[in-house]
């Protein structure tokens, strides 16, 4: 089944060597060293990301083609939106083949040499130290988590809701800056409720992925988040509104889990 999908991707991407790095419910993600249109030198180590949304056989073909095209465009549009918010780091869009469900983008992050060469997602970056409390709670980690929070705050100030804030969808770059990826569920909204839910998703993700240190990590993230709103009065009023909704959403979540 998945071999078939990879072959299908290859048929749309002739002469492009593809390496699968992730296979989710919606998309297959490949890396390649071949740029779609710039001449690439043979010894270049730069890699690019190709995100491919294959057809879904259980859907009506016409409907499926329309949906795939729309979702691919929506994600590319979000990358464009983020280009225009320079304070937020995000992968640049390189090419778009919406009819075939393909987005080319920059690859961000690096390989963690002290962690099986895994990609420097916030998840892996933190997990390196999971068994060492001293290292897990250093100033370095505090600063990085505050940067992550700050960037999410900036996204919210600009009414960008990520929609799937997990520690896998946040990349730490080699310069120890935070970078967002995976905008498959992202959208624009000014509603405090949507921002509160976005934060709640992050809170839960940290709790389930980094349970040992979740309380401290979330505290640092939220400190950064507040900083991301800046200091002017208008923003601070908005921040307060979001934090209020966030508390309410958390409370609803807790009640739900108590009722079991």
């Amino acid at each position: 089944m998945s071999d078939e999908l990879i072959q299908l991707a290859q048929s749309h991407l002739q002469n492009i060597p593809l390496q699968v790095i992730s296979q989710g419910a919606e998309a297959i993600v490949f890396t390649t060293k071949t740029h779609p249109y710039l001449p690439t030198s043979k010894d270049s180590h730069t890699e690019y990301i190709i995100k491919y949304r294959p057809p879904k056989k259980y859907r009506h073909p016409q409907l499926d083609a329309t949906l795939t095209k729309h979702r691919t465009i929506a994600e590319a549009r979000l990358l464009q939106r983020l280009t225009n918010i320079p304070e937020i780091q995000s992968p640049g869009l390189i090419a778009l083949d919406a009819r075939n469900g393909i987005i080319w983008m920059e690859k961000v992050g690096y390989e963690l040499i002290d962690y099986d060469d895994k990609i420097s997602s916030l998840k892996n970056w933190l997990w390196r130290y999971n068994d060492n409390q001293e290292k897990a709670l250093t100033e370095e980690i505090k600063i990085a988590l505050e940067k992550v929070g700050c960037m999410i705050g900036k996204a919210h100030v600009n009414d960008v809701i990520h929609g799937d804030l997990t520690s896998s969808n946040i990349i730490i770059t080699e310069a120890q800056e935070a970078c967002l990826i995976d905008f498959g569920l992202s959208y624009q909204s000014a509603l405090p409720e949507d921002k509160g839910v976005d934060l709640y998703v992050l809170d839960r993700a940290i709790l389930s992925t980094h349970p040992k240190y979740a309380e401290q990590y979330n505290e640092w993230l939220m400190a950064g988040y507040e900083r991301g709103y800046g200091k002017d009065k208008k923003s601070l009023i908005k921040l307060k509104e979001v934090l209020k909704r966030y508390e309410e959403v958390r409370l609803r979540g807790r009640k739900r889990s108590m009722l079991g």
């Binding site: 465009i73 590319a76 549009r77 990358l79 464009q80 280009t83 225009n84 320079p86 640049g92 869009l93 390189i94 090419a95 778009l96 919406a98």
Partner: peptide, 15 residues
């Protein structure tokens, strides 16, 4: 940054 904005516009034209 200008290049990135331009590439975005070229790739997303009509979308």
């Amino acid at each position: 940054l200008l290049l990135r904005k331009t590439v975005d516009l070229i790739q997303l034209r009509g979308c």
